[in-house]
Design a binder for these strands. Structure first.
Length: 732
RNA sequence: GCGCCUGUAGCUCAGCGGAUAGAGCACCGGCCUCCGGAGCCGGGAGCGCAGGUUCGAUUCCUGCCAGGCGCACCA
């Protein structure tokens, strides 16, 4: 709930700070800033709804007994006319707490009114609730960024789920958000696949997915390098051809990357994850971003040519004087090798400069494909007049001319490659992908964003913590260049990896030590859980369950709901852990639909929807996807709460009121997992309410009030799930 | 060797310097002709070790022990 332009929590903090400043307590050093006032939920509801130990902290400084300080704070709060409408009772307890009891009826009335009036905007982070200016500026988020040489696995899934929820959070706070998916399509990443295709002559089985085929091929080739030196030699030769360009091998390399990138998109689209721009590393190279950055860096004095020492002959950025680097043996980072070639870090630095719009160079852009949402996904390209007619070239199989037909061909449906070929299989996959998501795509024209791509005020790179050093170098590099503001706004959104539980590893056929706690995934060995395999398993399990519960549904209806539940299970599992926690992946945990899981949240939502349907007079069969009606008695106006609330009603209303605060805190602390926490607490509050009091059979006035709570809950739950990218089924 | 992160219930995880450290899973026992049993209620068990700061430490600091990850002219 929003009070006085901020969240309820921050409003209470501000009133507390004000009371401290006004009261007889006001010593100069006893005036905490509003955001510094400690405010917590007491362990026992008998103490009230909120409680602050601030008097305890100030007592020492004021050299007065804590209970006296608390009593004076209580008196000052009771004189606050702004607080009066919300607080019914203020008490002081034991060592020196001041407890606030909220006026449950007033709170419930306000929260229901707001939720029903604002609908899908309820819970948006109010301006003035974050330290930084809410909604000011553009945030560029890079996530997913899977090497386009094999299928996505569950580690990539964690990245995408975190990144996507982050993007949704920033949108809720009113920021302009641009999501980029970086694709490292340079020769080396696809070289192993090329060895398999060219040297070993491998081809996919009929019907086999391209990215799955590459997964196996990558494993096979890597396993054979040791025994067969000729293969390593072949790799070098193919790599050279790729780097020379303008030959069949180079074209095949591009095709391999493009096909995999498209499958990665399918994987993510299934989960409701979408992008604004694909940025290709090969374009960064081809457009000379690094050459340009090199000049900028040299002119800015950030780059040194070493004539002696271990880095002799290289261009480096010296970081010895940067905090965090001093202790290192060799803190300087090489950007240009002694043979004159640029390192990965160099390209990344150029790209980072571009993201902030300070490189002085830009890509060219072209629509790549239309996403199931109807929004176009754009791609960087190197040529202003690029015409991508060649099959397998980026930008789609047809010339993207901005109408719906281009969307069809870009996703493959407009093509008819020879049956049984690699491409035929890929195209079929795309048709299924786009048809299967159930989007309500509008015939939107492909128009680039009016302000252009990049030029961000803040850049967030979602990359696992193993890349911390590189990200630190990036920030330090910006600083060395004099881009202080950009350095501060360069955020490495790091998170721990996904490992396999010993049991999961064994199920995948890996040999596991008896004592092993977790097993790292290993792409080269093919040990890992493919993202789509997990989603498929989740979907199958849900489908069985749904079919048993709804024998009257068509296969398509069952599939639709099963898909929603699968997304709920997988995304919740991937988002609910703290960033610094290694996810020890276990099939049983990820596919559990009971307790603290996505489907539990969805179930609470479906139950609420069911009550609303019945209240609106709905009878007969219920089909998935039908909108939830608003009961007529709620349309008359905001329901009036009874004088005394049931504890379960009060608890639910409070939880509903917390939504904007939960989202604000998730942004502030950079913790998508907090959204999961909140969602689970919200769901249990509703379930408690559901168990404790009847709605439909309650006396009329109470019934209307409770229906208001149910409707407000349904809306809040849907909005919360939306931040997590989880669908809110109305039946399941 | 240096740096960063993590040690909380049998397992997987929460925990904002504050009151009786919370969930889920697993296990055991219950749930009324009642709005959906993917639910609800009840049960047991825990802060790696040792110091320190503080009125108060799972939380902050130091040391030790254990685990993970970094420390490229790889990407």
């Amino acid at each position: 709930m929003e009070v006085a332009g901020t969240t309820l929590f921050r409003f209470l903090q501000a009133r507390l700070a004000g009371a401290l400043a006004r009261s007889a307590l006001r010593a100069p050093d006893a005036r905490p800033a509003a955001r510094e006032v400690p405010l917590e939920v007491p362990p026992d509801p008998a103490f009230g709804d909120w409680s602050t130990p601030v008097a305890l902290r100030l007592a020492g400084r004021l050299r007065r007994p804590p209970l006296d300080v608390a009593a004076e704070l209580k008196a000052a709060l009771e004189d606050d006319p702004d607080l009066a409408p919300w607080v019914s009772q203020i008490t002081v307890s034991r060592p020196g707490y001041v407890n606030l009891r909220l006026d449950g009826a007033a709170l419930a009335a306000a929260v229901v009114r707001q939720a029903l009036a604002r609908r899908d905007r309820y819970g948006d982070v109010p301006p003035g609730s974050l330290d930084e200016a809410v909604g000011q500026g553009k945030v560029l988020i890079e996530h997913t960024a899977i090497n386009p040489n094999k299928a996505a696995h569950i580690g990539h899934l964690r990245n995408a789920c975190i990144g996507d929820t982050l993007a949704r959070l920033y949108r809720k706070a009113g920021f302009r958000v641009e999501v980029q998916n970086y694709i490292d399509d340079t020769g080396t990443t696809v070289a192993d696949v090329l060895v398999g295709l060219e040297t070993l002559g491998r081809r996919p089985e009929p019907g086999q997915r391209w990215d799955y085929f590459c997964w196996d091929l990558y494993t096979e080739v890597n396993a054979r390098y040791e025994q067969e030196p000729a293969l390593a030699e072949a790799r070098r030769r193919l790599l050279q051809l790729v780097e020379e360009g303008d030959n069949d091998v180079a074209r095949l390399g591009r095709l391999v990357a493009d096909r995999n990138a498209r499958w990665h998109l399918w994987t993510m689209w299934r989960l409701g994850i979408f992008y604004d721009l694909l940025s290709w590393e090969s374009d960064i190279i081809a457009l000379g971003f690094w050459r340009h950055a090199f000049d900028v860096l040299k002119r800015g004095g950030a780059l040194q040519f070493e004539t002696e020492g271990p880095n002799a002959g290289c261009w480096v950025v010296r970081l010895g004087d940067v905090p965090g680097f001093e202790a290192m043996e060799n803190p300087d980072k090489i950007l240009v090798r002694s043979d004159g070639t640029a390192t990965y870090t160099a390209k990344d630095l150029a790209y980072q400069l571009w993201k902030f719009g300070v490189l002085g160079r830009d890509f060219y852009y072209q629509p790549y494909t239309r996403q199931p949402t109807g929004r176009w996904l754009w791609s960087t390209v190197t040529d202003p007049g690029a015409s991508h007619q060649e099959v397998g070239e980026r930008g789609g199989e047809g010339e993207a001319d901005g109408d719906g037909q281009a969307a069809e061909s870009a996703t493959g449906a407009g093509l008819a490659p020879p049956a049984g070929t690699i491409l035929a299989d890929l195209v079929e996959g795309y048709r299924l992908a786009v048809g299967g998501y159930g989007s309500e795509a509008q015939g939107e024209l492909a128009e680039p964003p009016p302000e252009g791509f990049g030029r961000a005020d803040r850049v967030i790179n979602v990359i696992d913590i193993r890349q911390k050093y590189l990200q630190d170098v990036l920030r330090a590099g910006l600083q060395k260049l004099g881009y202080e503001a950009q350095a501060r706004q360069s955020v490495h959104f790091g998170y721990e990896v996904v490992a396999l539980s010993p049991q999961a590893a064994r199920e995948l056929g890996a040999e596991v030590d008896e004592a092993a706690g977790a097993v790292a995934m290993a792409g080269r060995k093919g040990i890992g859980v493919k993202a789509d395999d997990l989603v498929d398993l989740a979907r199958q399990k849900a489908a069985t369950e749904v079919a048993a519960r709804h024998p009257e549904w068509s296969a398509a209806e069952c599939e639709r709901v099963a898909h929603q539940i699968a997304v709920g299970a997988v995304r919740y599992y991937m988002t609910r852990f703290n960033l610094q926690t290694v996810i020890v992946f276990d099939f049983a945990d990820a596919l559990n639909y009971q307790g603290n899981t996505g489907p539990y949240l969805q179930y609470a939502h479906a139950r609420a929807a069911s009550i609303l349907r019945k209240a609106a007079g709905g009878a007969g069969p219920v089909t998935p996807g039908a909108p939830v009606p608003v009961p007529a008695e709620l349309e008359a106006g905001p329901p009036e709460p009874p004088a005394e609330l049931h504890p379960a009603e009060a608890a639910l209303a409070r939880k509903l009121a917390d939504l904007p605060e939960a989202l604000a805190r998730a942004i502030e602390t950079g913790s998508p997992a907090l959204v999961c926490d909140y969602a689970y607490g919200l769901a249990t509050a509703f379930t408690d309410f559901y168990e404790a009091v009847p709605v439909l059979t309650a006396p009329e006035r109470v019934r209307t009030f409770r229906l208001g709570l149910v409707a407000a809950f349904r809306q809040s739950m849907a909005n919360t799930l939306d931040v997590l990218g989880i669908p809110g089924p109305t039946v399941m």
